[in-house]
């Protein structure tokens, strides 16, 4: 399908919004570090149109009819994978999914071998998750197919970063001078890293809050190196959430305790759990996000997670819309 067919004016005029996408240059979506403000805004603009489609009874549009999108997950995931697959199906694409945690990869097949197989099957884009940082970059260099990074090690999770910022904008409108706090295991979080890059265009303040053992040593220098002046680091959560507009809690994996990075779950909960008594020290209208999957009772209390301030369900819905937008931009036309 050529771009003109998938663009407004032909079959999909009624189903898709029509911003100019001529300046979109990305063949892959690997991280948000190379997304300009215009490109990020374009994703959001298209995603808004997708939200409308998601509100319909019949959600399916033919934009990517005839295209095949593969998901290849080298690490277990249910949410992100389901979200991408649904996004592809709503756009009319065929999807295949390879669970690389169980397939031949587990038998010692190399990453590049597995990907070449997929390329030989002539799919139009590969959505890839991998436990090693940088794996999608190897894929992007080795293959002719477009790669969408669905999470690589501790490095990046661009679609999550986009859906998070999309959700923030949806709630707050202009993000200028707003304050967002990300609290939790910053050291191992690809979500935090992609949010650092994605939020840099919007004039907002981003506070990263964690115990010192969960902040990588080189973070302040990295922020300085790239002039990411909107980001600050704070170890005390109660100070961090003062005047915050949004608090995003990150999952704490149980292994962090076993490896000694936190001394006990009890201590972590005391210092960093988002719960009602903690929120008493924040603005009354503060909103709460979480990229999932949650450890309820650890980094977030259930009453907050399912309470009125929670945006967690909106994040899930927006995730499908944002991923539809990305698939449209990547697989929808000439940029293939």
């Amino acid at each position: 399908m050529s771009l003109s067919e998938s663009r407004p004016g032909t079959a999909t005029r009624e189903t898709l919004p029509g911003p100019s996408i001529d300046f979109w240059k990305h063949r892959h979506v690997l991280d948000l570090d190379d997304f300009s403000r215009e490109e990020t805004d374009l994703v959001f603009e298209i995603a808004e149109g997708m939200v409308e489609i998601l509100d319909r009874d019949v959600k399916k549009v033919p934009t990517l009819r005839g295209k095949t999108i593969a998901t290849m997950f080298f690490e277990p995931s249910t949410r992100t994978r389901a979200s991408f697959e649904l996004a592809a199906k709503y756009l009319g694409a065929d999807t295949i999914s390879l669970d690389a945690t169980k397939s031949s990869v587990a038998k010692g097949e190399s990453l590049i071998d597995s990907l070449r197989t997929l390329q030989a099957l002539e799919v139009d884009a590969i959505i890839m998750r991998h436990p090693c940082s940088g794996a999608p970059y190897i894929a992007a260099r080795s293959l002719d197919t477009s790669i969408i990074n669905a999470g690589d090690g501790c490095h990046a999770h661009p679609s999550q970063g986009l859906l998070d910022i999309f959700t923030m904008k949806q709630q707050l409108g202009d993000l200028k001078d707003r304050k967002v706090v990300i609290v939790g295991d910053i050291m191992h979080s690809r979500v935090a890293r992609s949010n650092i890059w994605g939020t840099r265009h919007y004039g907002m303040k981003l506070v990263l809050c964690a115990p010192p053992t969960l902040i990588p040593h080189g973070l302040p220098e990295m922020l300085e190196k790239y002039s990411l002046n909107h980001v600050t680091i704070e170890h005390n959560l109660d100070s961090a959430i003062e005047n915050a507009d949004i608090i995003m809690s990150l999952r704490l994996q149980k292994e962090r305790q076993q490896s000694g990075l936190i001394s006990s779950l009890r201590e972590y909960i005391q210092g960093y759990q988002i719960n009602m008594s903690r929120l008493a020290g924040a603005k009354p209208d503060v909103l709460v996000m979480h990229p999932g999957p949650m450890n309820e009772g650890t980094e977030i209390s259930p009453d907050v997670a399912y309470g009125t301030r929670s945006l967690i369900e909106q994040q899930v819905t927006n995730g499908v819309a944002v991923r539809m937008a990305l698939l449209y931009l990547i697989a929808g036309g000439k940029n293939r």
Binding site: S133, G134, A156, P216, G218, M222, K225
Partner: peptide
């Protein structure tokens, strides 16, 4: 090396 590049790449550092 444990430093800003390791953070940038999401790799674990050796101090």
């Amino acid at each position: 090396n444990d430093g800003w590049v390791a953070v940038r790449l999401g790799l674990k550092g050796i101090p």
